[in-house]
């Protein structure tokens, strides 16, 4: 069996672990669906004005989808921390796969978790739009959404990488959660996930507005709004920026996790 197929098997096993964690699924799904179906639909009827040509629902849902992707990908960090605590990582280290392959498997499974979970949210949003007649979905929008999948996957691996980094530097589980929540609050707050760029530029200093503009979550939410919901062609500059901001995060996380595995080999513990 090749190193690649072993990597895929480990990634698949870790990926399935995310969906086997029922309490986490319950928390994530209930939050995402209540945001989408209650806040999005109900508020959408209360707020008739359009944002950049989109209804409030169409504006909000890409944000929810991106936050769902973020939450699912961040769970990689929790799984890495658990694997370190429970010694599963030592089991992995006895398997016939290179350390780099093991690191890659975790990052890929984080990417897969993010893309599958957020993909499901997007599908639910499309169904809600169809059945509730909140607005119409251009067929091109669905095609553009499919074309966005590889880019969203890269974004999810980047976030998984960041989570891996925090898991690697966390001595205790509680500390990991503090890091993860701080990351979520800062990345979602300083972004255009839930607010238009103009609003941020209006109320926050210019450097913060620039960070928000180039935040990969903003780029992903923007691409979903423009293409998956409004049906406009994908903007290559946005996609390039998305890759340019996500890949370094994935590499940072992979490097941090690799360092931790190397430390285990030297010291016997992280």
């Amino acid at each position: 069996m090749s190193q690649l197929s072993r990597l895929v098997r480990i990634a698949r096993t870790d990926f399935s672990y995310f969906f086997r964690t029922k309490w986490l699924m319950a928390v994530l799904i209930s939050l995402s669906l209540s945001d989408m179906l209650v806040v999005g639909l109900v508020y959408g009827r209360l707020i008739p004005s359009k944002f950049a040509g989109l209804t409030y629902f169409q504006f909000l849902v890409p944000g929810i989808v991106v936050v769902g992707l973020f939450s699912a990908a961040t769970d990689t960090g929790r799984r890495i921390w658990l694997a370190l605590r429970e010694g599963v990582v030592q089991y992995y280290l006895t398997l016939p796969i290179r350390t780099g392959g093991l690191v890659g498997a975790y990052i890929i499974s984080g990417g897969l978790g993010g893309i599958v979970y957020s993909g499901a949210l997007l599908a639910i949003a499309y169904l809600a739009l169809s059945f509730l007649g909140a607005s119409t979905i251009p067929i091109q929008g669905i095609l553009y959404a499919l074309a966005l999948v590889p880019f969203l996957f890269i974004l999810a691996t980047g976030i998984a990488g960041l989570a891996a980094f925090f898991a690697s530097v966390s001595r205790r589980g509680e500390i990991y959660w503090v890091y993860a929540q701080a990351l979520q609050v800062s990345m979602v707050t300083i972004s255009t996930v839930f607010y238009p760029a103009q609003t941020i530029a209006q109320y926050l200093p210019a450097p913060v507005a620039t960070i928000a503009e180039y935040n990969p979550l903003s780029l992903a939410a923007g691409a979903l709004r423009t293409s998956a919901f409004a049906g406009n062609p994908l903007d290559t500059i946005v996609l390039t920026n998305l890759l340019a901001t996500s890949l370094p995060l994935a590499m940072l996380g992979a490097f941090a996790y690799w360092i931790i595995l190397r430390t285990i080999r030297l010291k016997g513990k992280p």
Partner: peptide
């Protein structure tokens, strides 16, 4: 690692997997 196997002093397994699933994964890796 291709030619050796170890049974740890403290059992290591995926918490949310069943024994047969853990063994299937292990068998596939080897």
């Amino acid at each position: 690692r291709e030619v050796m196997g170890i049974a740890f002093q403290e059992a290591r397994g995926f918490w949310r997997h069943k024994p047969s699933s853990i063994l299937r994964f292990h068998a596939s890796m080897f």
